[in-house]
Design a protein around this nucleic acid. Structure first.
Lengths: 209, 209
DNA sequence: GCGATAATTCATGCGTTGTTGAACTTTTCG
DNA sequence: CGAAAAGTTCAACAACGCATGAATTATCGC
């Protein structure tokens, strides 16, 4: 007990600048990732994010201008460079490309606890730009990049097929959490899905339309 | 021009009961499907739905008790009976089961303009129950039902794999609208995806975990 | 040390949301 | 035809949303 006598709940924080270099900005981004992932853009409130970060709601406007600005930095910025991923994926045998993609996908997103992927997908709901980011990541960066180097026919159609399987995997594992896929270990999932990815990448795909 | 002189925009509607048996209830449900599909649960406003239905916002509470109640009737109730679907799908050769599933999936959801599927998926964002409905539809009703009659091994694992591909297809085609998959005609998509579905249904799937 | 600047909380403004009760009009039924 | 019931709009409320400006305290450059 401090000398300030017994206040019912949280003592009202002191005004003014806090001592020590506490990185409020980073704390807000981390909290925002969590809350946006749980609730999506609209349902998430500035107050709720600030509360979880342990600071006042006004800090959101101070550091990011608006809720929108915070969203852009916390969710719309991918937490890794796509090109690095592509380089790591491409290296290796063409017949095991699907395997490497699925494994990398699971490894990367599992590392973030699925929160960032869920945030991205959940935001497609209420935020126009999020759909673009998702599409850019999958179709433009990831698969088009991969398929360009392999020189396949119908690269865009193949890319959207691959995206459909990966988006679905992400939805089921990280957002909707269907069992047993949500809890299966990575290699089990790789074994199950990689052959199908491989077919989208290098198998025979006829394009009538 | 009526005798009421020139009012700038929409003339204020007359009070009281409207003549003729206009089905306000049904109009609200239809409008709600659209708006929930575009915006998700939180972003959709009662006033916006009512405006699109051409009635007063208070009608939502009159007919459905609350926004929540309207959501339950408009989105959570599937627009068709799952058992009917299963019956139609199962009939036929086991080797072409994947083909029939993909075709039926596209036919059904295309018929609703994709709106209902988008509404369902978009609602997973902000509404706890919606995730259950989605899971129930895919895993419990659709694929478990199908796989039970075919007597496969690992039916639940196979079901969630199938769900991942179908959810992904729905996301890409109806929600995020990645091209060219979003606009491809049904048979093209069937040709591309059915073989992969078939593998999830009857191919060899090892389950380590 | 001291002024300038940056970081933080608080109080408040202003718009929007879901919901409710009253007033009003048409239909239904005896 | 007349009274009760059902359908509909309107006005208003209380709660909550984001954003802003003033007040307060720490750090930094000299």
């Amino acid at each position: 007990m401090t000398s300030k006598a017994n206040q019912i709940a949280a003592e009202p924080k002191r005004r003014g600048r806090r001592p020590g270099g506490q990185d409020t900005r980073a704390a807000l981004i981390a909290a925002a990732r969590e809350v946006f992932a749980e609730s999506g853009y609209q349902s998430a409130t500035v107050r709720g994010i600030a509360r979880r970060a342990g600071v006042d709601a006004a800090m959101v406007n101070h550091w990011f201008g608006s809720k929108e600005g915070l969203f852009a930095e916390a969710v719309l910025e991918l937490p890794f460079a796509p090109q690095t991923l592509i380089d790591e994926i491409i290296e290796g045998d063409l017949e095991t490309l699907g395997e490497r993609i699925v494994r990398k996908f699971l490894t990367v997103w599992d590392a973030f606890g699925g929160g960032t992927f869920a945030a991205l997908v959940r935001s497609v709901t209420s935020h126009e730009q999020a759909a673009e980011v998702l599409q850019d990541f999958f179709v433009k960066y990831l698969f088009s990049g991969v398929l360009k180097t392999t020189g396949s026919d119908n690269p865009k159609f193949r890319a959207s097929l691959c995206a459909s399987q990966m988006v679905g995997l992400g939805m089921v594992r990280y957002v909707a959490r269907f069992e047993p896929l949500a809890s299966a270990d990575i290699e089990t999932v790789v074994d199950a899905i990689a052959p199908n990815m491989q077919r989208y990448l290098t198998g025979t795909i006829t394009r009538n339309g």
